[in-house]
């Protein structure tokens, strides 16, 4: 009597397949499916009503959605560039330190140890228009006698969020770039010195190409982080007031869990994913180019 016996490799892979299906595949399929329904968390039966691409059309036509989308791209661009430059500067400074560098490196990582929610609360206090540190400092220095509405004015709130974001993440760049600086061989730098390079030229022509791969890795990681930015904004402004600091995921989060329109939220989520994918692919391409430039590509 012959019974079906699955091949050994399949049996061995089965645990992994089951776990992946449970935690990734099924939620993915379910959420994708629900984006084609008017699914509301409060009315489970709506999950079985097919409405085609209605949610997607609604999102694409929504000015709120595109405003949040644009604001996220803007935050991503400005935050990443500034964090990269400041992280690079910080790494170069720390790299010069000979005594107590280990302690400095540890201190440098402190911001990464705080939960973004706490960072949000901290900066919400710092930028508070009545009791906040910034306004107090500005008023004590006599630079202004008004209470600047940091978290109310759209542009100022954007700057406040940007500051919090940079405070918490510049060290990610600094640590990764510092690792890159440690890996730069000494010989080509010395050769450049002998070849007539000023310190700036040595940095520009030799050191920078060596650390570019590290910069791109940091950019790729951080672009994913910022593209899904939620917690700091949620705490500091809750996307408001009046949607002035609305980012993609605060919008999607509110639509899904406060308004309970999960189908619509999922549709916006799937559109937004492309933003993250785009930046990741972009930076990984740059990374590979920078690596093959150095003859490191396999």
């Amino acid at each position: 009597m012959s019974r079906f016996r699955p091949p050994v490799w399949f049996v061995l892979l089965l645990p992994a397949i089951i776990i992946l299906a449970a935690v990734v595949l099924i939620p993915l399929i379910l959420s994708f499916y629900s984006s084609f329904t008017p699914y509301k968390l409060t009315r489970p039966d709506t999950l079985y009503k097919w409405i085609g691409t209605f949610n997607y059309e609604k999102a694409i036509k929504s000015t709120h959605f595109w405003a949040a989308f644009g604001r996220t791209v803007l935050l991503l661009t400005i935050a990443l560039n500034l964090e990269m430059l400041m992280g690079l500067g910080l790494a170069l400074l720390v790299n010069k330190v000979t005594y107590g560098q280990r302690a400095l490196r540890t201190i440098m990582m402190f911001p990464m140890m705080f939960s973004p929610v706490l960072v949000g609360f901290q900066f919400k206090f710092i930028f508070n228009d009545n009791v906040g540190l910034v306004n107090n400092a500005l008023q004590s220095l006599g630079l202004t006698d008004k209470a600047i509405p940091w978290l109310v004015d759209g542009q100022l709130a954007f700057i406040a969020i940007l500051t919090a974001e940079m405070w918490s993440a510049t060290s990610v760049f600094a640590i990764l770039i510092l690792a890159g600086l440690f890996a730069v061989p000494r010989d080509p730098i010395e050769a450049a010195k002998v070849d007539g390079c000023t310190p700036w030229q040595s940095f520009r022509h030799i050191t920078l190409p060596y650390i570019m791969p590290f910069i791109y890795i940091a950019l790729a990681i951080r672009s994913l982080d910022v593209a899904r930015a939620y917690d700091i904004v949620q705490i500091m402004t809750n996307g408001g007031p009046a949607r002035r600091t609305e980012l993609l995921w605060t919008l999607i989060g509110r639509t899904g869990y406060i308004d309970a329109k999960m189908g619509y939220a999922n549709a916006m989520g799937y559109i937004s994913i492309f933003l993250a994918i785009f930046f990741t692919v972009y930076f990984f391409r740059k990374l590979n180019a920078a690596r093959s430039e150095l003859g490191m590509a396999g």
Binding site: P185, D187, P188, E190, A191, A192, V194, D195, H205, I206, P209, Y210, E293, L294, G295
Partner: peptide
């Protein structure tokens, strides 16, 4: 106004 040749060549890999 000197040139130097290094043991590990020290070429610029990029």
């Amino acid at each position: 106004n000197i040139s130097m040749v290094f043991q590990n060549y020290a070429l610029y890999p990029h």
